[in-house]
Each structure stands twice: as structure tokens, then as C-alpha cells.
Write a protein that binds this DNA or RNA. Structure first.
Length: 571
RNA sequence: CGGUGAUUAGCGCAGCUUGGUAGCGCACUUGGUUUGGGUCCAAGGGGUCGCAAGUUCGAAUCUUGCAUCACCGACCA
């Protein structure tokens, strides 16, 4: 490629509405342009990177015996009604109508289409197991798209689905996929971790997420410092404190705490640590049609946060988790939100494991402007349940039993699920087993955010001058930067010679043949992040040499012109 | 959806308070100059001032409504 015939589209200045590094560099390096919120055009350079990621994913899927196919972006509403997700998926599912007023969706994922297809295509257990994948555009009408292509509304995803007769077979494929994913992220050259994950709204049993570690990530990942345990904070279990709860030593006492609401204010006002205060949150329980929802109290230690995913899973608590309104709080506790406490509360009380370990603690007195001190479980609160409902915090013991947890930020770039029979049952995907009986299939699904990987790779690989691509996904392998080739016939001749030799050797090379000063060419090459730089100048030509520099840094070296092609080919 | 802020040339911004010929830098075109890290000089081209209504002799500027974009939160994965 010649820059003179290419759409380079680099920007000197950072566009005002790009916040994160990857978004800024993707715009400045001319990888993408925004069309509307969460919708992007991929410019030539960006597309090259996107395709490289896609191809690595494709190669490893193929190698793992997964078969490629392609499903439509637009899907009929019937399929979604059949799976139940027409109702369950919510407004993120973009619903559209055609000219005949028939309802369709823009596919946010393809479980429905694939499961329906498989229900027609497969008849016998002898055809199992089967794994298929596609690389397709997905559309999710995110409430707030952000960070460029990191969380766009339209994005490129690899989604794979596997079909099995039983759980054991599913688990074998799941492990193969796990290994294939590790291979993919290894090849991409990213610093990533597979972590235990919650299965979320897609449902199912077991799940791992693959995270690229980066400060700008939207997820918190918990790691053990002395084992390979890693889990999304949504999933990481908070163990019960060891030992018995301390015995009560203080009497229960009601104290006036005027205009004191938050845990911080309560702790300051009463001069105690936040970890000696219990906070009580009221949420709604499940209700039958027509009934008023019951209110349930969740008790946490003052310095801990509620884990909504864990709370939602407790039987009787409404999904999605809904906090009680001010009126419902008044009704259930008889006070404002800042003064709720478990003592004397006449509703279901669920205490977090750590909160349940408190003794002589402070809590709301269920009277606006008052708190209790010296509160104790068993003595003052007789009827309560204990559950793990908090987020783990750094320093907590690891659930694996080894070491303590630290927390890092991650960008979710892959997610694998064991789905079970949720969709197979709903869509009637079954085969005859070896007894000639109909048997519902068991499924797995496996996603990789292809376009998100491009952004994640930049988050992890950049400096003040621009992107530093991992070699495997760089848009070009080599850039030839001739110094003043419009003045020097020797430079021009050498540059052109090397360019055609590299092309002939199958190397992805771009030559900067613009009539620009050297500084401009260096800056652009660095911004775009091309790994290998060949610099050709008069000063080295007398020795039949050119300079070589790697984007990642290190000293410039000189190469004999005759050695360049081989040198680059071995990189 | 709640909160905050923004919208003036392709990009980054000023002008608005106090209404009166729409500006600057980058980019672009032309000529010259320079040539190992975003040269310098000169001359140019390019704007329904987000949209609509209102006030006014006159609106980028004041008023109202709407739209779009971004960030924080909630949501989602």
C-alpha cells in the first residue's frame, strides 16, 4: 500500500467527545468514525485490524472443530415469543416492523435462530455433538453507548453454539472452547484472564468470562493472590467470617441521630467505625398477580456493598431487584430510608454473612432520626436468615480457600456459557436417543466481542504517541519511511526496491510516499502503531544500509539493504 | 431513565454577559521556503452559528420548545 493512494485520515487533535484512550486513538489514527451514538464506520485501517482479529478467532474456531455458518441480523418476532425473550429481554432489544406490519427484531444474539434451525436439521443422537459459529453484526439498543466501539450499539461478535445429548458431553465441549479461547487471546497478544462469571440474563449453569485487564474496564475482577482463582465480582463468593459471633456486651439503646442518614454520617455522629454499623436496605419480594409485593430487608455491614446479582438469586426476592419506594419504606418500617434497622422489623430479614457476625452494632431504629446502639443478633433480632449478598472487597479471603483477594479492572471480551436446555426446550430442539425416545438437547454458547477486542487491545497497548499494536493484529506489519525521497533519487530508488521486494515476499507493507517532512511521517507511523519501521535516508545509503526501529521502542539498528526482506520475514 | 455539560468550517475552539459585516489555530488549495521528529511566509477556498418558533428595525448573541452528542449514575453484558 502507498500512503499517497490510501485513506490515512489521521488527526492531530483529539476529538472533544472521546474520553477513553482507545476511543481517542481510534479516531486520531483514522480507524473509525462515529455515525451516530454507538454506531461507527470502520475506515480502511480499522477494518484491517478488525479482520485480523476476526481471522484469528475464525482459525481457532475451525481448528477446534466448530463449523462456520451465517444467520440473519433481522429476526422474526415469533422466534423471540417462542423463547419467551420477546417479553424478558427488555428495551435493549430493538423491535422493528416491516411494510406488512409484521414484527421483527434486530438480533442482539442468535440463540433463537440457531436453536430453531437445529430443531429442524437434527433428528438423531448420532449427529451429536455439533458446534457451529458465525461472525455477525449484533445490535443492542444500549441505554448509554460509551467508550467508542467498546460499548457500541452495533458491534461485531463471534457467537458459537454447541448441541449435546447430555451434560457430560457439553462439559467436554465447554472445556475445548475454554482452551480455544485461551489460544485466541494468546495469539492476539493480550494480557487476559478467564474468570468465573455469573450467567446473567442468558441463563444457564456454568460460565466463564474472558477479560482483558485494563484500568478503563467496566468490570471488577477478584483474584486470589496465591492461587489461580479469578471471578467477576458479581460472582465471587464472600465467605462467612471464621469463628463464632462475639457475645453481646452492650444493652440495646435508642439514641437520637437528627439529620443523620448515610452510614458515613451515622459512623461520624456516633464516633464508631463504619464496620460497626449495619445498613438495612428494603427490596421488593416476588408477588402473585394482583397482590402487593412484600418488602424484604437486607442487612449489610456499613462498609460493604450489596451484590444485586446475589440478592436476586435468593428465593422470594423479585427479579429484577427492585428497591422499595419511600412510601413502601414508610409502610414497612415506619421511618425514612436513613433510619431503617432490623431490630423489631416485622418483615423477612436477610443478613449478609459478615453482617450477621456483628455484635454490639449500630443500626437504624425504624423511627426517623433515631438509631440503636448495642444491637445484637439472636438477642434483639430473633427471626433472620443469613446469606451471601455482598460484593467482596480487596483483602477478603479467597473462596477457593487459598490466599486473599485483590481486585482489578477488566474489559469483558469473551463469555462462555453452559446453557442447559432452556432454549432447546422452548424451541423444541430434540433428537431421538439410542432408545428411540425423543430427548431435548443440552446447549452451550460462546461469544467473543470482535470489535471490542480492537478497543481493548489499544487500551492495553499504547503510549503518548499512539497505538502500539501487538504484531498479530497490526494493520500493517512494516512501514517504509523514506527521508526526502522527492529530492533524493537514491532514497526513492531504495525505498521502491524494498517496497516491491517486501510485497513480493508477502509482507504487509505500507510505504509513506507522501511529499511530507520526516516528522509528519514519523508521527503518523507512531500514531497508527505499525510495529516495524524501515527508515531510509541519504546518511546510510553510502554504506548500503537502512535503519530499523520497532514501535515498542528499543534502539534503532542499521541493516544492510540486502538483508531487510529476510530480517522482516523472520519477525 | 435521573443528573451534568455541550452544539459556531472536516477537527480543536473564541465570539454571546452589553443584539448591529461570523473569527482564530489545525487541516485543505496555490506559490515560495524548508527537509532526520507535526518548518516558515504569503495568497485563497470552505460556515443554513443544531432545528423550530418568538421578541426586535435587526438575533450566533435574548426567550421558549425540540433535537443531537458526551460524561456521571442506574441499566446491560
Amino acid at each position: 500500500m502507498r500512503t499517497s493512494q490510501y485513506l490515512l485520515s489521521t488527526l492531530k487533535e483529539t476529538p472533544a467527545n472521546a474520553e477513553v484512550i482507545s476511543h481517542q486513538f481510534m479516531l486520531r489514527a483514522g480507524l473509525v468514525r462515529s455515525v451516530a451514538s454507538g454506531l461507527y464506520t470502520w475506515l480502511p485501517t480499522g477494518l484491517k485490524v478488525l479482520r485480523k482479529v476476526e481471522n484469528i478467532v475464525r482459525e481457532e474456531m475451525d481448528r477446534a472443530g466448530v463449523i462456520e455458518m451465517l444467520m440473519p441480523l433481522v429476526q422474526p418476532a415469533d422466534l423471540w415469543e417462542e423463547s419467551g425473550r420477546w417479553e424478558d429481554y427488555g428495551p435493549e432489544l430493538l423491535r422493528i416492523k416491516d411494510r406488512h406490519n409484521r414484527s421483527f427484531v434486530l438480533g442482539p444474539t442468535h440463540e433463537e435462530v440457531i436453536t430453531k434451525l437445529i430443531s429442524f436439521e437434527l433428528n438423531s443422537y448420532k449427529q451429536l455433538p455439533l458446534s457451529v459459529y458465525q461472525v455477525q453484526t449484533k445490535f443492542r439498543d444500549e441505554i448509554r453507548p460509551r467508550f467508542g466501539v467498546m460499548r457500541g450499539r452495533e458491534f461485531l461478535m463471534k457467537d458459537a453454539y454447541s448441541f449435546h445429548l447430555d451434560q457430560e458431553c457439553l462439559e467436554t465441549t465447554y472445556q475445548k472452547m475454554h482452551a480455544a479461547y485461551c489460544k485466541i487471546f494468546d495469539r492476539l497478544g493480550l494480557d487476559y484472564r478467564p474468570v468465573l462469571a455469573d450467567t446473567g440474563s442468558i441463563g444457564g449453569d456454568a460460565s466463564h468470562e474472558f477479560h482483558v485487564l485494563a484500568e478503563s474496564g467496566e468490570d471488577d475482577i477478584a483474584f486470589s493472590d496465591s492461587s489461580d482463582y479469578a471471578a467477576n465480582i458479581e460472582k465471587a463468593e464472600a465467605l462467612a467470617p471464621v469463628g463464632e459471633r462475639a457475645a453481646a456486651t452492650q444493652a440495646l439503646e435508642k439514641v437520637a441521630t437528627p439529620n443523620v442518614h448515610t452510614i458515613e454520617e451515622v459512623a461520624n455522629f456516633l464516633n464508631v467505625e463504619a464496620n460497626k454499623v449495619a445498613k438495612t436496605l428494603l427490596v421488593l419480594g416476588e408477588c402473585e398477580d394482583g397482590e402487593t409485593a412484600p418488602v424484604i430487608a437486607l442487612v449489610l455491614r456499613g462498609d460493604h456493598e450489596l451484590n444485586e446479582v446475589k440478592a436476586e438469586k435468593i428465593a422470594g426476592i423479585a427479579t429484577p431487584l427492585t428497591f422499595a419506594s419511600d412510601a413502601q419504606i414508610q409502610d414497612a418500617a415506619g421511618c425514612d430510608a436513613g433510619s431503617i434497622g432490623p431490630v423489631g422489623l416485622n418483615i423477612r430479614v436477610i443478613a449478609d454473612r459478615t453482617a450477621a457476625h456483628l455484635a454490639d452494632f449500630v443500626c437504624g431504629a425504624n423511627e426517623t432520626g433515631f438509631h440503636n446502639t448495642g444491637a445484637n443478633f439472636e438477642r434483639d433480632i430473633t427471626d433472620f436468615e443469613v446469606a451471601d449478598i455482598r460484593n467482596i472487597v480487596a483483602g477478603d479471603p479467597s473462596p477457593c480457600g487459598q490466599g486473599t483477594l485483590t481486585i482489578k479492572r477488566g474489559i469483558e471480551v469473551g463469555h462462555i456459557f453452559q446453557l442447559g436446555d432452556k432454549y432447546a426446550k422452548a424451541m423444541g430442539a430434540a433428537v431421538l436417543n439410542d432408545n428411540g425416545k425423543n430427548q431435548t438437547l443440552t446447549m452451550g454458547c460462546y461469544g467473543i466481542g470482535v470489535s471490542r477486542i480492537v478497543a481493548a487491545a489499544i487500551e492495553q497497548n499504547n503510549d503518548e504517541n499512539g497505538i502500539i499494536w501487538p504484531d498479530a493484529i497490526a494493520p500493517f506489519k512494516v512501514v517504509i519511511i523514506p527521508m526526502n525521497m522527492h529530492k533524493s533519487a537514491r532514497v526513492k530508488e531504495t525505498a521502491e526496491k524494498l517496497y516491491s521486494e517486501l510485497l513480493a515476499a508477502g509482507v504487509e507493507v505500507i510505504i509513506d510516499d507522501r511529499k511530507e517532512r520526516p516528522g509528519v511521517m514519523f508521527k503518523d507511523a507512531e500514531l497508527i502503531g505499525i510495529p516495524h519501521n524501515i527508515i531510509i535516508g541519504e546518511r546510510n545509503l553510502d554504506n548500503e544500509e537502512v535503519e530499523y526501529k520497532h514501535r515498542r521502542g528499543g534502539d534503532k539498528e542499521t541493516l544492510k539493504i540486502t538483508d531487510v526482506v529476510e530480517f522482516i520475514s523472520t519477525k
